[in-house]
């Protein structure tokens, strides 16, 4: 498999269902990913690549439920103000399956169910921050992308000030020498 970097599906090891991810915009949904290397494909590798391509099509069938997406998972709320509120919140909530994506971006079914939950609750008049808090109570601070000001994140907030200060100090030294 020269020229290919493979990250094999973990379906057979029994973890496929928990790791199935995809980008909504890209319409993905595979546990398999590969990064093509040089464009020349050796001939003897063709059969393997074909088998691999077949596997790409075959595996995800087992990793998805047979139910359609929940109501409001992919539909906007009729009230634009509420939809905007829901959207802002969804962009700052982490998908529990695809852990690097927000639920607004993720193609995972659980993310769809989370979007449906957010929209239903916003439509019922619940405040976005209350919904965020509800999820944090269940999954930990980790589920929210919104950065907090707390002892753990102080270095994060202070770093720009410290770096600016350091820069000013160094620049001052420079100017003095040139004078």
């Amino acid at each position: 498999m020269k020229g290919f970097v493979l990250k094999p599906s973990r379906n057979l090891l029994g973890e496929g269902d928990r790791t199935k991810c995809g980008d909504r915009a890209a319409g993905g949904g595979n546990t398999l990913r590969f990064a093509p290397g040089p464009s020349t494909i050796p001939k003897q590798g063709l059969a393997r690549i074909l088998a691999f391509a077949l596997a790409l099509v075959a595996t995800p069938a087992l990793a998805d439920s047979n139910l359609p997406a929940a109501k409001w998972a992919n539909e906007q709320l009729p009230d634009p103000r509420q939809e905007a509120e829901a959207r802002t919140l969804m962009l700052t909530l982490r998908c529990i399956v695809c852990q690097g994506q927000s639920i607004a971006d993720s193609d995972a079914e659980l993310a769809g169910d989370m979007r449906a939950m957010v929209r239903t609750r916003i439509a019922a008049g619940e405040k976005p921050e209350a919904i965020r808090q509800w999820l944090i109570e269940r999954y930990g601070q980790w589920v929210s992308y919104k950065p907090l000001v707390e002892p753990m994140t102080w270095p994060l907030w202070l770093a720009p000030l410290v770096l600016l200060g350091l820069g000013a100090f160094l620049a001052r030294g420079r100017f003095r020498r040139h004078r």
């Binding site: 269902d17 928990r18 139910l67 929940a70 529990i96 399956v97 079914e109 659980l110 169910d113 989370m114 449906a116 939950m117 999820l135 109570e137 269940r138 999954y139």
Partner: peptide
Amino acid sequence: DTASRVQLAMGSSGV
């Protein structure tokens, strides 16, 4: 649980 409601309420992240 057709829309994963209880699953989310329990803080469960998969099956």
